[in-house]
Amino acid sequence: MSTLNKDSLLPLNPMHLPELPSWFPIAWGWWASAGATLLSILAIWLIYRWNKKRLAPKKTALRLIQAGEKPAEAFELLRQAALCYYPREEVAKLTGKEWYAFLDTQVKAPLFLDNYDVWQVALYSKEPLGNASELVSHCSQWVNEALPPKRRRTKVG
Rank of each mutant, 00 (worst) to 15 (best):
S2F: 13
T3E: 14
T3Y: 12
D7L: 08
L9C: 07
P11S: 09
N13E: 06
M15T: 08
H16G: 00
H16C: 02
L17S: 09
P18V: 00
E19C: 03
L20K: 15
F24M: 02
F24Y: 14
I26H: 15
I26N: 15
W28F: 09
W28K: 11
G29L: 10
W30E: 08
A32N: 10
G35E: 00
G35I: 01
A36S: 10
T37M: 03
I41R: 08
L42R: 03
A43Q: 02
R49F: 04
R49W: 08
W50L: 03
N51W: 15
A56Q: 12
K58F: 12
K58E: 13
K59D: 10
T60H: 09
L62C: 12
L62Y: 12
R63S: 11
K70W: 07
A72G: 06
E73R: 13
A74M: 09
F75N: 10
F75I: 03
R79E: 10
R79D: 08
Q80D: 13
A81C: 15
A81H: 14
A81L: 14
A82H: 12
L83K: 11
C84F: 15
Y85V: 04
Y86K: 10
Y86A: 04
P87I: 00
V91W: 11
K93T: 09
L94V: 01
L94F: 06
G96R: 01
W99F: 07
L103C: 11
T105S: 10
V107R: 05
P110T: 00
D114E: 02
V118S: 11
V121Q: 14
L123V: 04
Y124D: 04
K126M: 06
P128Q: 06
L129K: 15
G130E: 13
G130D: 11
A132C: 02
A132M: 03
S133N: 06
E134L: 00
E134K: 05
L135K: 06
V136T: 04
C139R: 09
L147Y: 13
L147H: 13
L147Q: 13
P148A: 05
P149F: 08
K150P: 03
K150G: 05
K150F: 05
R151I: 01
R151F: 10
T154K: 08
T154R: 08
